[in-house]
Amino acid sequence: MNIKERIQKALKQESGLRLSAAEVQSLASVLHVGFPVTHRWRRKPSPSKEPLAGEVRFMCRADLESVVAIDDAATEDAWGKDDYIRHMSQRMVVAKVIERPGRGRRARTIVGSLVYERHQTWIDLKRIVVGTEYQLHSFGRQLIATLQSNLNKRSLTHIRTTIDERSLPLMLFFRLVGFAAVEAHEGKIVMEYYWDGEPRPYRSELDCRSATQTWQSEVYGDDEETGGLKV
């Protein structure tokens, strides 16, 4: 039985076919395929290994069109223009954008935005968005770093944010930049980052062994006071 008959029989039986090196060489020769096939192009590195520098500045009304378009393309529960204006009009709310600097004929481009509210001792992060084509290039980390640089032991001690428990990519992003989950209720997860970078997975006013508290097992998988981070 020659190689052609063996292949036809294997296809009819829907079974695999094991060929020797000589048979593969002869088949490649018949099909006019060089053997072994070599790729002459370089493999493109992962985008996550190519951080790009951005410039963070305060958001102005002229940026809203670009920011809303990025938000709409990157998230399911996108903020509209009115949502951004309503938050920006509040006294203690700060909005910033991050731009990719221009180079040559390439114009400066807004690639992400950040909205947060300053409280007496902490920062409430309300919104962070990075364009889909610019994700995994460290722009999100640079936005978070602008908040982390404002923290200290005596005044602003931590950053707090609330996300939907179904937003796994966003949850993983916050874990990567040092946030820890502290609460879970009604489909929402509260995450915090402290000035010293040490996670506080349990809040002091909560009894970690109380039978009425169920968020420990939902988020961490156990009810121990010294439970590890298992998000």
Rank of each mutant, 00 (worst) to 15 (best):
I144C: 08
M92Q: 14
H119D: 03
S46F: 06
D63P: 05
E192D: 09
R42P: 00
V37N: 01
E205I: 08
R91H: 07
V231P: 00
H32R: 13
R42L: 11
E65Y: 06
T75H: 10
K44Y: 02
E133C: 04
N150S: 14
W215C: 11
S29W: 03
L17W: 04
E55R: 15
D72Q: 15
S167M: 10
F173T: 02
Q90E: 14
G112R: 03
I3R: 00
S167Y: 10
K230F: 02
V97D: 02
A21Q: 10
I3V: 15
A107E: 09
V94M: 10
T132E: 11
S149Y: 01
K230L: 04
Q90L: 15
L168F: 12
E192C: 09
A145Y: 06
H39K: 13
H119C: 12
I70P: 03
H185N: 04
T75M: 08
S26Q: 10
I7K: 01
L125Q: 03
V67I: 15
E218N: 07
M88S: 08
G197E: 03
A145E: 13
G178Y: 04
L176M: 08
Q25H: 11
K4N: 11
R6G: 05
G102C: 07
D72P: 00
I85H: 01
S66A: 14
R118P: 03
D222Y: 01
Y134W: 15
N152C: 13
I128A: 05
R209H: 12
H119S: 08
Y220P: 01
I163L: 15
I144M: 15
L206N: 10
S113D: 12
Q213D: 08
V190K: 03
D82W: 07
E198G: 00
Q213L: 15
R18T: 14
L19V: 06
A95Q: 04
K49N: 07
T38M: 10
T226S: 12
G227A: 09
G112H: 07
F173L: 03
V67H: 08
P101E: 05
P36L: 08
L168A: 13
L168P: 00
V177T: 14
E5D: 14
I3W: 00
K188N: 07
V24A: 08
D77K: 11
R108V: 15
Q142M: 10
G80V: 12
N150E: 13
R141V: 10
D77M: 10
R106N: 07
V94N: 11
E186N: 14
V67R: 04
L136M: 12
P199G: 04
I70K: 02
M171S: 10
S167R: 05
D223P: 00
Y202V: 13
R100F: 12
S210H: 07
H32W: 02
Q213T: 10
A69Q: 11
D222F: 01
P45F: 01
A78H: 13
M59Q: 05
S46R: 12
G221I: 08
V177F: 02
V68L: 09
Q216V: 00
A181D: 01
D63C: 06
L229V: 11
S46G: 01
G80T: 13
H185C: 01
L52R: 05
S155F: 06
T38E: 12
D82M: 08
K126Y: 06
E5G: 06
K230Q: 05
H158F: 13
M59W: 05
L19A: 02
I123C: 03
V56N: 04
M59A: 09
L170C: 11
Q213S: 07
V33L: 15
R203C: 04
L64K: 02
P201L: 12
V67Q: 03
I123W: 02
